[in-house]
């Protein structure tokens, strides 16, 4: 264990940090599930408005996805760009 250099240690810690950063995906998963569930019940109540409900749901889900994508971006930066090494 003596021959680990500082750069290797930082690279390993960056990999751990990248794994921690994508935990941010939990939030958008819950949010998109709630949006899809409410859209499904809305279609059940009013089947005539299916196309409007679908487009609104997709728009809201895509906006809710943004926070998860920020976590993904941090993970990608840590893994591939490696700003700390």
């Amino acid at each position: 264990m003596d021959n680990i250099t500082g750069a290797e240690l930082i690279r390993a810690c960056s990999a751990i940090g990248a794994g921690l950063a994508v935990i941010a995906g939990i939030g958008p998963g819950i949010g998109q599930g709630i949006a899809a569930g409410h859209a499904a019940s809305a279609v059940g109540r009013n089947p005539g408005a299916k196309s409007d409900i679908t487009s609104t749901m997709l728009l809201g889900q895509a906006v809710a996805e943004t926070t998860g994508l920020y976590g993904l971006l941090v993970a990608i930066l840590l893994m591939f760009v490696q700003p700390l090494v």
Binding site: A62, T66, L69, L72
Partner: peptide, 16 residues
């Protein structure tokens, strides 16, 4: 920033 990062990160994650 959020407009551009949303599009960028979605397409980049698919590419990766």
């Amino acid at each position: 920033i959020s407009l551009s990062l949303r599009l960028f990160a979605n397409v980049l994650s698919g590419t990766i």
